[in-house]
Design a protein around this nucleic acid. Structure first.
Lengths: 138, 138
DNA sequence: GTATTTCCTATTAAATCGATAGGATTAATA
DNA sequence: TATTAATCCTATCGATTTAATAGGAAATAC
């Protein structure tokens, strides 16, 4: 299951991309419009900022804005920040590889074989999709 | 993340497929060979049996066996039994569709748009993979 | 009838998730 | 400079899920 954190994060990013003017977008506005608990959303946008996807401005008239053009924001990055590793098992993860305790030989492991395919196909989707794609209305 | 239940289940199925003779395979043997807690594996094989993937024979010389040829056992079925819905959000699920509370229009929802693609690509993998593929050593 | 195996239910410990609380920090503006 | 409004940060909480264990009932081979 996709976590609510990721779901909310994607919706917020989309919202920001769509309302991209020159002034930053406030958490309260997004939370209200997208039906997201504000405090929860705060922490999500914070992690997106720390990861470099969003920038922020504090104080009155502050808010969040995209650091790059929506067309440059790849889903691979966003998903890794919000949801964690894309692979469903560490032994097929590109960025978080870890050997299985139990498994003597990965190349004979059926789980490895199957999840490698899933990882590849999911990765293909995320690599070919940007925030601009998500934000376009058609 | 893939649950251990699914991981263990896939390994067990592979083990059974590989040692497919005429006599059923016992839980204890699989557990030992694959480093799986036996009692946990018991419950997993039980759900696989209830779902129709496995058959069983009780008592001495009992055990589990495949109801169909490995080449007929599709990953779509196995994964749905073990891991649940393939879709990451209910609003793009084929078998467990559910409308989102918050979302006024699915066709304008970025999460829906993205997860639909992920579901399709994952489904393609599972539809094209059988237990025979997992069990082959090459 | 005894040993061996699956079958079933209940419980538990730990981890994760979703959300909330409370306030510190920063910046605009009156 | 005081006030207001926003992000920033840490801590906590309740609920759910996960992984595993426990104990025994039911069935079958011999």
């Amino acid at each position: 299951m996709l976590s609510k954190k990721t779901k909310y994060g994607l919706k917020a990013l989309t919202y920001i991309a769509r309302s991209e003017g020159d002034s930053p977008v406030q958490v309260g506005e997004i939370a209200k419009s997208e039906n997201i608990p504000q405090k929860f959303l705060e922490s999500i946008l914070l992690t997106l900022r720390k990861s470099g996807v969003l920038g922020s401005k504090k104080g009155k008239h502050g808010g969040y804005y995209l650091r790059e053009d929506p067309a440059e924001v790849k889903m691979t990055d966003v998903m890794r920040v919000l949801e964690g590793p894309i692979a469903m098992v560490p032994c097929v993860s590109l960025n978080y590889y870890e050997k299985c305790e139990d498994c003597p030989d990965e190349h004979q492991c059926s789980v490895n074989k199957l999840m490698l395919q899933v990882r590849d196909s999911t990765l293909k989707v995320f690599r070919n999709t940007t925030l601009a794609d998500l934000s376009s209305t058609k």
